[in-house]
């Protein structure tokens, strides 16, 4: 659906996007992840025909952004970082304007308007002035504006920025619901957002793509060894943490055991396995055979956050990872 090859965008002095290539299949949700200033917005602006590329090509639904911008524009919905709203307009008036601008036939306009106001949950503010809306509502009106013409491709630039936690969850759910009908690219610097909403991740840093993969693969690929959290119940002081630790260390395939804490009579350990060894069954057996109560045994997956830091270097932390 989207095909980007060797895309480069130079500004007067800086290279914002440097030889970026990626592909997005139809119906996918792709997370565009990177610290602030990595080139996410610039790439999106090229895809939406707002900026022409300095070199390379970008195609949306088979149309080139330089040669057939009109065909591309018809097929994309775009929500820039700050929603493009006219404060002096009422919500419904604004959506009608955008709908007409996007070329929705007169007869379909009312139906589309009802549909998007329902989908984005903005029905109760339809007749309010946009200037008087709260940030959350503005963001949703912005999203409604992006989907009003039912585009094939949705490009969302930091759709949850500046929202409160409840609104963030609602917006993410909304985006998930939109997948399937639409191909979605969303940019963010918030990692859990990608883990929760996206199927694929493109990690970009300093204008370059540093990783493209599915969320699952990326986590697996970078996880050298498995980390397992083990919780053992102790009653009347037995067993002692030291004894459990010793027992766990003897299990085959275990590289290292850390005693995390003892709380409410439960010892919590973190066990790291050797590369490529599945140690969980052996760990469970070890604890149970010793006659202790195994309360919890859980694989701790390496979070995307850690992967991200590994890939982009230390400056990701400065980029506002939440």
């Amino acid at each position: 659906m989207i095909k980007v090859e060797g895309l480069t965008k130079r500004y007067a002095r800086t290279v914002a996007v440097d030889n970026v290539s990626f592909e997005v299949q139809k119906g996918q949700i792709v997370g565009f992840l990177g610290p602030n200033g990595a080139g996410k917005t610039t790439t999106m602006r090229v895809l939406t025909c707002f900026l022409p590329p300095s070199a390379g090509t970008a195609q949306v639904a088979g149309y080139d952004v330089l040669n057939a911008p009109m065909d591309v524009k018809k097929r994309i919905g775009y929500l820039p970082e700050s929603p493009p709203l006219y404060p002096e307009m009422e919500v419904s008036e604004y959506l009608q304007f955008v709908g007409r601008l996007k070329g929705i036939p007169r007869g379909d306009l009312a139906r589309r308007l009802d549909e998007v106001t329902g989908r984005c949950a903005i029905g109760d503010v339809r007749n309010k002035l946009i200037g008087k809306l709260s940030k959350g509502y503005r963001q949703r009106v912005g999203l409604a504006q992006a989907i009003i013409h039912n585009p094939d491709v949705l490009i969302l630039d930091e759709p949850t920025a500046g929202l409160d936690p409840k609104q963030i969850i609602e917006t993410r759910q909304l985006i998930k619901h939109l997948a399937g009908d639409h191909t979605i690219i969303l940019s963010t610097h918030i990692l859990p957002e990608v883990e929760q909403t996206c199927e694929q991740v493109i990690i970009i840093s300093k204008g370059k793509v540093v990783a493209t993969d599915s969320v699952e693969n990326l986590t697996n690929r970078l996880r050298g060894a498995e980390t397992v959290a083990v919780e053992v119940e102790a009653s009347n002081g037995a067993p002692e943490a030291g004894a459990v630790l010793q027992r766990l260390e003897q299990v085959a395939g275990v590289a290292r055991v850390l005693h995390r804490e003892t709380k409410n009579g439960r010892h919590v350990f973190e066990v790291e396995s050797l590369q490529g060894q599945a140690v969980r069954p052996a760990l469970a057996r070890g604890v149970v055979e010793a006659g202790w109560n195994l309360v919890e045994l859980r694989a701790v997956s390496l979070s995307l956050e850690e992967i991200f830091l590994q890939l982009t270097g230390g400056d990701a932390a400065a980029g506002g990872v939440q």
Binding site: Y78, P80, Y86, L101, K102, Q145
Partner: peptide
């Protein structure tokens, strides 16, 4: 100033 130019420029309008 308000960024709405992005809406106009990315809509199928010349």
């Amino acid at each position: 100033r308000s960024g709405t130019i992005e809406l106009l420029a990315t809509s199928p309008v010349r």
